[in-house]
């Protein structure tokens, strides 16, 4: 069974960028034609996405926090402070709409998604560090995301801090607890092999849930996007610039802190590959403004392609630094 699941996994994950664009396209077409109102599905979909991300994560990984405190702190600074600051600065400088700026800031403030560890693994970086950063920021996000938004965009738009905290508590703690309990019960019940066998299925399920969230978000905004293509294209250009700057600032921070190549990769990618499904869920539940959701859709369109571009550039920059240090 595991071999078949691996084949399914490889096929599905290989064409993820294509699936993202297809979901947006289908969301726009079906949303425009049928006026779909599927926003009630977003919460259970994000629950599924985080739940399947946590189930295969071994607890012992968290002891690694003590092994590399410097890298953890730098990762947290890049993910929690630098990313939302850059998002806010770029979008408020280049966009006139305060709600779109709030959307970009929200996209920058949420924790990294499972793809951070994936990019880290592909680039030969420190994967356990990526997973630990992902888990810590997921937990912190319940407090950090609402207050980051309040501090950065609170004077321009109304930020419902309590509602955001409640939504995040449901979005994060429920699946996190359920995921850990499932793993623990499976281990105690001698069903650890079942988790092993199903391991290739988890990223597929998580990816499908994320695609469904993108589809729903696009369908909800179909009318606005189709009637105003110039606005969305302008927002996409800002998103391109935002991710480019984010990769550069992450790289500069890693170099200034003298991180080695392995540890620099999850720090840089942690800031630039965020869990945008959480951002969409928060935008739909707490902000009743299309500008917020449109900004996150633009980030969805850009995040993965930009991560692929920097996949080729970053090793040359960061590994060159390591070689210089060795000399």
């Amino acid at each position: 069974m595991k071999k078949k699941l691996i084949r399914l996994n490889v096929f599905f994950r290989k064409y993820m960028t294509l699936w993202v664009f297809l979901s947006i396209f289908l969301g726009l077409v079906l949303g425009y034609t049928f006026r779909l109102k599927l926003n009630f599905l977003i919460l259970p979909l994000v629950f599924l996405m985080i739940y399947v991300m946590i189930v295969p994560t071994p607890f012992s990984l968290f002891a690694r926090v003590f092994m590399s405190p410097k890298e953890i702190i730098l990762g947290l600074v890049n993910i929690l402070i630098v990313a939302p600051l850059v998002a806010f600065a770029i979008s408020s400088a280049l966009l006139a709409n305060n709600f779109t700026t709030a959307g970009f800031t929200l996209a920058g403030a949420v924790p990294p998604g499972g793809m951070n560890a994936a990019w880290t693994g592909l680039l030969g970086g420190n994967v356990p560090l990526a997973i630990v950063l992902q888990a810590i920021t997921l937990i912190i996000s319940v407090i950090q995301v609402p207050y980051t938004l309040k501090i950065l965009v609170g004077t321009y738009v109304s930020v419902p801090v309590n509602l955001l905290m409640r939504s995040l508590a449901v979005l994060v703690f429920l699946p996190l607890t359920a995921g850990f309990l499932t793993r623990e019960m499976a281990i105690r019940g001698g069903k650890e092999n079942l988790i092993e066998d199903l391991r290739p299925l988890f990223p597929v399920l998580s990816g499908l849930a994320a695609l469904a969230v993108v589809f729903i978000a696009a369908s909800l905004q179909a009318k606005k996007i189709v009637s105003n293509p110039a606005f969305i294209s302008h927002t996409v250009v800002v998103a391109l610039l935002y991710y480019a700057i984010l990769f550069v600032t992450g790289t500069v921070i890693s170099r200034l802190a003298k991180l080695n190549y392995e540890n620099a990769i999850p720090v840089v990618y942690g800031g630039a590959t965020k869990n945008l499904s959480i951002a969409i869920a928060l935008a739909v539940s707490a902000f009743h403004n299309s500008g917020v959701i449109l900004a996150i859709i633009a980030c969805f369109m850009v995040q993965m392609p930009m991560a692929s571009v920097f996949f080729r550039i970053l090793p040359k920059i960061l590994a060159a630094k390591d070689r210089q240090q060795d000399l």
């Binding site: 691996i6 996994n9 490889v10 994950r13 793809m115 994936a118 693994g121 356990p128 997973i131 990223p203």
Partner: peptide
């Protein structure tokens, strides 16, 4: 190389669709 490290890398490769 401990089990947690191995599983972490396995997960990362599965997320990227490159696991063999």
């Amino acid at each position: 190389v401990d089990r947690a490290t191995l599983e972490a890398y396995e997960d990362a490769m599965l997320w990227s669709g490159k696991f063999e």
